[in-house]
Design a binder for these strands. Structure first.
Lengths: 346, 346
DNA sequence: CTGTTAGCGCCTTCAC
DNA sequence: GTGAAGGCGCTAACAG
């Protein structure tokens, strides 16, 4: 029915072992023999049986990339970068790796499920992007799962997520706290004192760190915290949170959003309320997604080098770049001051 | 070293076959036995070996989703929808399927590579999203690959892509032509006569169909085609193409973009040129991505039911929804008239 | 309902 | 540089 390696061997008049060797290219084979085999492969339209190969070799060419929300460019950009470093030749059989992205939807349960599925497939590596849920139960389950994955030979790289102790996982973390602090400092420097904050979902590392940075800046300046509202990382959340913030404190002069997408929703709500940006209310985001420079006014935000971080994570996962000292590296964000923030109205 | 099914069997004092049966849940097993096995699985922290299972069963729980650009929400939304319908229970072993998305970057070569990789893994199904490259050579290679995949038992669903003959693949196509026509008709109705067009990359079905719709509308109205420029589906392309269009025809009163992202770039270029939207130049996009309603002015566009289409593709791929008659269904777009289009200046 | 018996297709020592 | 043989871990008939 389907063509097997034995069929190729027969046609090329060599042993199955030889065919395997040319396919994997990790063993000396005479040039003429190799050519004969390759021709047979072509003629028979042979496709290696991945499961069989993985079973015998006790490892596969699958590399998993976990993202919280595949519809969000924040993750799409990182995932694409990881893939671009992995997809190339260099795998075991046929020289290609299967880089696949798995959408957890931000659910810690699905995150674990995907890790199990990947473990089941004996994935060669796993890259986990974005913030983590901070529930202690989940954290423990996660640490255990990562440890077992690592013990089974899967390389693990965290990209945009803080390290998990005792797992051997390599972490490239974003400096969300520092970025959040600089952003709020910028607003304080402009003269803002009543700054509303739209935070991400609770119990997420990203949310907490950005918020802490915000609070650090306020504290350092001796300014009281104004209203803070939590919500998911989407446009609608920004819209609704802003209406809530305006209700809680009609006199606020600035709004900091958990990320650019949320900031977009905030802008919409402000406009609907008849408030001008930045004349009446300044708005700031986080991440610097591609659209942020195009909205009107262009968004003040913190740029995270998403692509570079993803690419680096991919290379580390492939063993093509040395892991950072201490298995951990903090990536800084850059404050991008644009038209959406200005001095407060007097 | 690693725990195998035999270990579980020994601990539960049953045969390996029985363990397999409870794990796959597709065979009657006494409740008490099942419980004993499950407990052993838990105690030993056993994880099924996917490759071995796939090899023995000659099929896997892997489902592939191909996208042209994972950083583009157009694909992210569809991919997320497909996954949400696939990820759930219902798979063979352990009741979970591994839904994975593969980023082709719009390259026909990588598209074929990924299909081979998926074929190698004996994927249960493959969903291919977005437009296809129209190069005849690639089309032929693609048709052959799809046919072989189908013969090997992989279900294939095209989502947002026209059908490929003689492959058995099911197609859910978007009515890009109709949408393009309605969009241009809308501008013509408003009184526009000099309409610049920013098309997507050449030799893509999506590009061609949308452009054809545009031309259909012009022709029906007896209006000559104004300047048309091609470019990738990104913001920068829209920006540069608009500068080019303005150079070619400074008197145009409207610009139709290949999609919303391109339209964003077009808006930026217009503003930079000191032109107001829509007073001086109207702008229209395509897709109705989430941000399109938030930009200022809100974008007139054609809404494509991306999520619904993806979800349906996922269900069909899982055999949970009947395939459309003739293995093909055309999904219409809906014209969304918003602030970015208005009567031309007189 | 459960155990026994063969493989699934490939990789990998070991000989030659 | 190449062939032969055993086994990777699981599933799917068969028996019982």
């Amino acid at each position: 029915m389907t063509v097997t390696l034995a069929d190729v061997a027969a046609r090329a008049q060599v042993s199955p072992a030889t065919v395997s060797r040319v396919l994997n290219g990790n063993y000396p084979v005479a040039a003429t023999t190799r050519e004969r085999v390759l021709r047979a492969v072509d003629e028979l339209d042979y496709v290696l049986n991945g499961p069989a190969s993985a079973l015998a070799a006790a490892t596969s060419d699958l590399v998993g990339i976990l993202v919280n929300d595949i519809a969000d460019p924040f993750f799409g950009i990182m995932a694409g970068a990881v893939q671009s470093e992995i997809g190339g030749p260099g795998g075991r059989a046929g020289g290609e790796r299967l880089a696949v992205v798995c959408n957890t939807g931000g659910s810690s349960e699905r995150e674990l499920t995907y890790l199990t599925l990947l473990q089941r497939q004996r994935a060669a590596a796993v890259v986990i992007t974005g913030g983590a849920v901070e529930d202690p139960l989940h954290a423990e389950a996660m640490a255990g799962k990562l440890r077992r994955l690592g013990e089974a030979g899967t390389r693990i790289v965290l990209c945009g997520r803080p390290p998990v102790q005792d797992t051997g996982a390599i972490a490239l973390a974003f400096d969300n706290r520092g970025g959040g602090r600089r952003l709020t400092e910028h607003l304080l420097d402009l003269g803002h004192r009543r700054i509303g904050y739209i935070a991400g979902p609770e119990e997420r590392t990203t949310t907490r760190h950005r918020l802490e940075g915000h609070r650090d800046a306020l504290k350092a300046a001796g300014v009281d915290e104004c209203a803070t509202v939590h919500g998911p990382y989407d446009r609608r959340s920004g819209y609704e949170a802003t209406r809530e913030l305006l209700r809680q404190d009609p006199d606020l002069t600035a709004i900091v959003a958990a990320n650019d997408t949320v900031a977009l929703g905030a802008c919409a709500a402000l406009r609907e309320a008849g408030l001008r940006i930045p004349e009446d209310v300044s708005v700031a985001g986080f991440d610097d997604l591609p659209f942020s420079v195009d909205v009107v006014p262009a968004l003040t935000t913190v740029r995270l080098p998403l692509y570079e971080a993803g690419a680096r994570a991919g290379r580390i996962a492939m063993g093509r770049e040395a892991e950072p000292p201490g298995k951990m590296s903090v990536i800084a964000g850059e404050l991008m001051v644009r038209g959406s923030t200005a001095r407060p109205r007097t």
